[in-house]
């Protein structure tokens, strides 16, 4: 009985979490502009969605900036994590504190500070500033994903590689990087998802003509309800769901192989490292 009550409570919370998404998805097939009225099944909104120039070009920008910023942030962040791992004392603490700054700072503060910088330095707001901003807020998350892997690393591995005659660069490329690869991949994926999900920082650092998907949705939603957004939501949610299933199946397989990589949802990692990660 108690077990039943407990389960029902969780199902109730799930209903709360999923109801809005479910309603959006159902209404994306509704052949009527007004809500509440069911006008029959249609794919009209999907057709209109793909014909909408603004949405399609912002989808392209989102993907371009997501991929580019994730790759650059992963390179800088991985190198930084290796450097942080090998530094000590005040230097390490100072760098870690600066790393946590964008994680803990309210997004809007990071956003306006970057906007001030770009305008102050006379950089035209647009693709470039958007990219720079995204790399900036992504790097800390890459570092926080890679550092735990470095801590698990056997200290003598690097020395052994050197003893066996490899140069430091070789040791890094052939020994260290492959060992911490799961952390790097996690960081890359995390950076990509954070980038495509971001609204606040993009909103302040973009200029006229350049718009990400989030910005487009915001300006459409501000004007009220639009069935094209419902269609878009359905596609995005399905995409995310498929991605999650793939990641989880892969992860389950890896765990069976006895490797316990550090995976988890982006928000989990963000939250737990922000709070419990080492400083």
């Amino acid at each position: 009985m108690v077990r039943f009550l407990k389960r029902s409570y969780i199902y109730l919370v799930f209903a709360f979490l999923y109801m809005p998404i479910a309603v959006l998805m159902v209404y994306s097939f509704n052949d009527s502009r007004s809500r509440g009225v069911w006008g029959g099944f249609t794919l009209r909104w999907y057709v209109e969605l793909f014909q909408d120039r603004t949405i399609m070009s912002s989808l392209y920008s989102t993907m371009f900036i997501g991929v580019t910023s994730a790759i650059i942030a992963t390179i800088i962040g991985t190198l930084a994590a290796i450097g942080i791992h090998n530094s000590r004392g005040i230097q390490k603490r100072l760098i870690m504190n600066i790393t946590y700054l964008p994680v803990l700072n309210p997004e809007i503060v990071t956003a306006i500070s970057l906007m001030i910088l770009f305008v102050f330095a006379n950089v035209r707001l647009g693709y470039l500033t958007l990219l720079l901003a995204h790399i900036t807020f992504n790097i800390p998350y890459v570092i926080l994903s890679v550092l735990p892997k470095l801590r698990q690393l056997n200290k003598h591995l690097y020395e052994a590689a050197l003893d066996l005659g490899s140069t430091p660069v070789q040791a890094l490329w052939k020994v260290i990087i492959p060992e911490i690869m799961p952390g790097i991949i996690t960081g890359l994926l995390l950076a990509f998802t954070l980038s495509i999900d971001d609204f606040v920082i993009s909103f302040f650092t973009t200029g006229s003509g350049v718009s990400t998907l989030s910005i487009t949705i915001y300006s459409m939603a501000r004007r009220g309800i639009n069935p094209k957004i419902n269609a878009l939501s359905t596609i995005m949610f399905t995409f995310v769901l498929l991605l999650l299933i793939v990641v989880n199946v892969r992860q389950a397989r890896e765990e069976k192989k006895g490797r316990n990589g550090r995976h988890g949802s982006k928000k989990q990692i963000r939250s737990f490292d922000a709070k419990f990660g080492d400083a």
Binding site: F199, S214, F237
Partner: peptide, 9 residues
């Protein structure tokens, strides 16, 4: 899962 959906949506 719902958190993976775009915040604005």
């Amino acid at each position: 899962v719902p958190m993976w959906m775009n915040f604005l949506l």
